[in-house]
Design a protein around this nucleic acid. Structure first.
Length: 494
RNA sequence: GGCGGCAUAGCCAAGUGGCUAAGGCAGCGGUCUGCAAAACCGUUAUUCUCCGGUUCAAGUCCGGAUGCCGCCUCCA
């Protein structure tokens, strides 16, 4: 079963064929380090994290490059506002970014190059473009001449005439064509600069990615990714620069993730509806955010809201309850003396094992089909129900610790979790974190809750049901839900 | 103005020509339980915004209408 990838240029799913057998080179545009990352950045990171995880689980050796733009107008602006060096700003936000990614369980890419560390690469690339007649210098600026690159606009499905008709670009006398874009910008007074054949200045945004992908992945590589807003102009310009220089295709597949929206609108500073990752992670376990995103297809827009996040939380709790159950059974069964099991259910057990295997295959196949995480999660939940069903009907078998279903379930959930980057927490720890966050959000006092539970337990032991129910009712009004089992009472926040 | 995307149950969301339209959340009935909760079992879209067309067969392809969204400016 081949892997299929939706290619932005052809707008079709295509069979993925890497340049080199068994190896994949992928480049994804990273952040501009001038502010904290929001859930939009989180989505892009999680999407490509899963892409890479799946490719690896399918046996590919993946080189994943994700850059940092650490020199840029917005960084300079912020540095000037704060009266610090630009690098202080970029370093600060790169560090915060890395913290957020770690918290989200996003694996660190193979290579994370920074623009400022690749000045030579950029300058030599611009030189090539000058020599080949694709670029021209004016007063210390260097521009790319889009008219000299006939394929300009192919990725985004536009042509120069259309774009100029509705152009909203600044009129700039120095450009030959209003669509020409800067490869090198002459530095203004007080701005950071690097020396170049065209005078002191700094690189344009687009040339960074062309230079860094070229350095680490070569002139042509397999997959280039990023948010859908980067298709034009950023990726179009990257293609123009790289292909003009090398005469070869830049990337064989272009993948773009959809946006995170809020109230059906794009997040933007002007609307004031930006949600930083670190703010959300104060209130939700990071895997809740991952699950929320992975429940939709990566190319569709997702609408962020507290209620959809809460739904994802409930779904994740369902999974972790099962994982906890599995963990407890496995722990209880180790060290116990093996009892002989009545073989009555042996056939049934084989069926459970087979069905788990089948779900694992379906899961992988779903991801093969353009990384359909939503469908894959459907199979994960099927496995949850299947295992719960097994537990509900097979207590005596489990007690013996002999069931072949147990290691199989462990393997299945381990696989699902490893590829999607969820189920990485210990179940008990997960519930503890969840409880802490929920009680804090609601301003509840844990000690008080636990005292009430003790009182209720005392009432229950005395078979004073009315009193016990009264206490439970009181707790319920605080959104505290109780779960009684034989020897203990577990509580959680609804 | 130009280019593109989306429209599936109360909500979220898979599905890209063919068996009974995944899954999650919410709801309802049953089992379990002192009663609950959780879990399990069952149940909740004769139908996929609307109107035409192609086809033996369409949520899925084509044309049109309506509504929502994105890109064309920095943006994941």
């Amino acid at each position: 079963m081949p892997i299929k990838v939706f290619h932005t240029r052809t707008r079709k799913k295509e069979v993925f064929q890497p340049l080199q057998e068994g190896k994949v080179g992928i480049y994804v545009c990273g952040i501009t380090a001038y502010d904290v990352c929001h859930i939009g950045h989180a989505r892009a990171a999680v999407v490509f994290d899963v892409v890479v995880r799946h490719l690896r689980s399918r046996g590919y050796q993946v080189t994943y490059v994700k850059n940092f733009t650490d020199i840029d107008d917005k960084i300079i602006l912020r540095a000037q506002k704060e009266g610090v060096n630009f690098s202080e700003i970029s370093e600060r936000f790169i560090n915060l970014h890395n913290e957020d990614m770690t918290a989200l369980g996003v694996e660190t890419p193979s290579i994370t190059p920074k623009a400022t560390e690749h000045m030579d690469d950029m300058i030599s690339l611009i030189k090539i473009l000058m020599e080949k007649g694709y670029a021209y210098a004016v007063d210390g600026d260097v521009y790319f001449a889009v008219n000299n690159f006939p394929q300009y606009g192919r990725l985004s499905g536009r042509n120069l005439d259309e774009m100029q008709a509705g152009a909203r670009v600044d009129v700039n006398d120095r450009k030959k064509n209003p669509m020409d874009f800067a490869l090198w910008k002459a530095s203004k007074e007080g701005e950071p600069f690097w020396d170049s054949p065209w005078g002191p200045g700094r690189p344009g945004w687009h040339i960074e990615c062309s230079a860094m992908s070229r350095r680490y992945l070569g002139e042509t590589f397999d997959i280039h990714g990023g948010g859908e807003d980067l298709i034009f102009p950023h990726h179009e310009n990257e293609i123009a620069q790289s292909q003009a220089a090398s005469g070869k295709p830049l990337a064989n597949y272009w993948m773009h993730n959809g946006f995170v929206k809020v109230d059906s609108e794009k997040m933007s500073k002007s609307l004031g509806n930006i949600f930083p990752i670190r703010e959300i992670l104060k209130n939700y376990h990071p895997e809740v955010l991952r699950l929320f995103m992975l429940q939709s297809h990566y190319r569709s827009p997702v609408d962020y809201s507290t209620s959809s996040l809460n739904e994802a939380r409930t779904g994740l709790i369902r999974c972790y309850s099962t994982l906890q159950q599995l963990k407890e059974i496995l722990e209880a069964s180790t060290g116990n003396e093996m009892q002989s099991v009545k073989n009555k259910s042996q056939v049934k057990q084989e069926e459970y094992v087979n069905r788990l295997n089948e779900l694992m295959e379906k899961f992988d196949t779903a991801l093969d089909d353009d990384f359909n995480t939503a469908q894959a999660l459907g199979y994960v939940f099927d496995a949850v129900r299947l295992f719960n069903n097994f537990v509900a009907g097979g207590k005596n078998i489990i007690a013996a610790g002999q069931s072949a279903v147990l290691p199989e379930a462990k393997k299945a959930f381990g696989h699902f979790g490893a590829v999607l980057g969820i189920f990485q927490d210990d179940p008990d720890h997960f519930f503890q974190i969840d409880k802490e966050m929920e009680t804090r959000k609601r301003g509840l006092d844990v000690a008080e809750i636990e005292n009430l539970i003790k009182d209720r337990q005392a009432a229950r032991n005395a078979r004073e049901w009315t009193r016990a129910d009264e206490i439970r009712g009181k707790l319920a009004s605080l959104n505290v839900v109780l779960k009684d089992s034989k020897d203990k009472t577990i509580w959680s926040i609804e």
